[in-house]
């Protein structure tokens, strides 16, 4: 069926939560897009909050980009690559006045992305492979600190960390926040950094001394947190640079869980 120039199969949703479904569609104007559709009129609220979150992210990212551009030089942070771009949000009368949010994913193909939760469920990774994922997630959260740093808010409000909310493109090291699950905490970054670290600690496999040092840093994050995401981000990349050098591309290194070869290896490791 077609809704406002977007072709979408109503029987084939990509994901769902209690209050909305996620579809992949194709827009006449914008190409492949993600649609979130509220399940009922009363569920419109959660997509209002979702749209508000992405609007805030885009505004903060644009402000940083404008500032960096004004400084000259080519080195821009490109925070806009870290989250889906909200193209439109509307209440669709033909769908019972349910809200629909439409997103485009920056700079990569939708077909090459997997939810972070699914990636963890299906693949085992070495510790070094998690650096760019954690780094980008921490960088993403820095966007929520911006208004506090500018003195416009007295607290920063961070959405809770849910791995389902992030899409990962392993090939191009893409981490894209595409969903706001709700839950905001206006405390310091501490609790969120601990949650992120714990998630990865349960996932990664340590193969050598360098990876062990990385593991130790994540353990420290998980036990003591950090007061700001910026600090955690700096600590992570300072260690990674020391261990493996700056800006060195490391391919996503994994083993598929559940295969015979994986099981054999697990037994040998015991």
């Amino acid at each position: 069926m077609k809704i406002r120039g977007i072709e979408v199969d109503p029987n084939d949703f990509f994901a769902q939560t209690k209050r909305f479904r996620v579809y992949l569609g194709n827009s006449d104007k914008d190409g492949p897009v993600i649609l979130k559709v509220a399940k009922t009129f009363d569920d419109n609220d959660v997509l209002n909050e979702d749209a508000a979150t992405f609007t805030r992210l885009a505004a903060n990212s644009q402000e940083i980009d404008e500032y960096e551009t004004s400084l000259g030089g080519g080195n821009r942070s490109r925070f806009d690559l870290l989250f889906a771009s909200l193209l439109s949000t509307f209440v669709e009368a033909s769908q019972g006045d349910r809200r629909i949010n439409v997103y485009r994913v920056p700079d990569t193909k939708l077909s090459k992305l997997l939810p972070l939760s699914k990636l963890k469920a299906d693949y085992e990774i070495d510790a070094r492979s998690c650096v760019w994922m954690i780094g980008r997630i921490l960088k993403f959260y820095i966007l929520f600190e911006k208004d506090k740093m500018d003195g416009k808010e007295t607290v920063a409000r961070y959405p809770d960390f849910y791995p389902e909310d992030f899409l990962i493109g392993p090939e191009r090291h893409r981490v894209i926040y595409y969903n706001y699950s709700g839950g905001e905490d206006d405390s310091i970054a501490d609790g969120h950094i601990k949650a992120i670290a714990k998630f990865f600690l349960e996932w990664i496999v340590v193969n050598d001394e360098a990876e062990q040092r990385l593991y130790n840093l994540l353990k420290d994050f998980s036990e003591h947190g950090r007061s700001e995401f910026y600090d955690a981000h700096s600590n992570l990349y300072a260690l990674a640079s020391e261990l493996w050098g700056r800006g060195v591309y490391y391919p996503f290194t994994y083993r598929v869980r559940g295969t015979i070869a994986w099981q054999k290896q697990k037994e040998e490791e015991k």
Binding site: N44, N48, T55, R56, A59, D147
Partner: peptide
């Protein structure tokens, strides 16, 4: 401007729609 957009995104959007509904 972006500052105003951020603030406006924070209000209870569609609150009157809920009442009409």
């Amino acid at each position: 401007d972006s500052e105003l957009i951020k603030q406006l995104s924070n209000i209870e959007i569609g609150a009157q729609m809920k009442l009409r509904h």
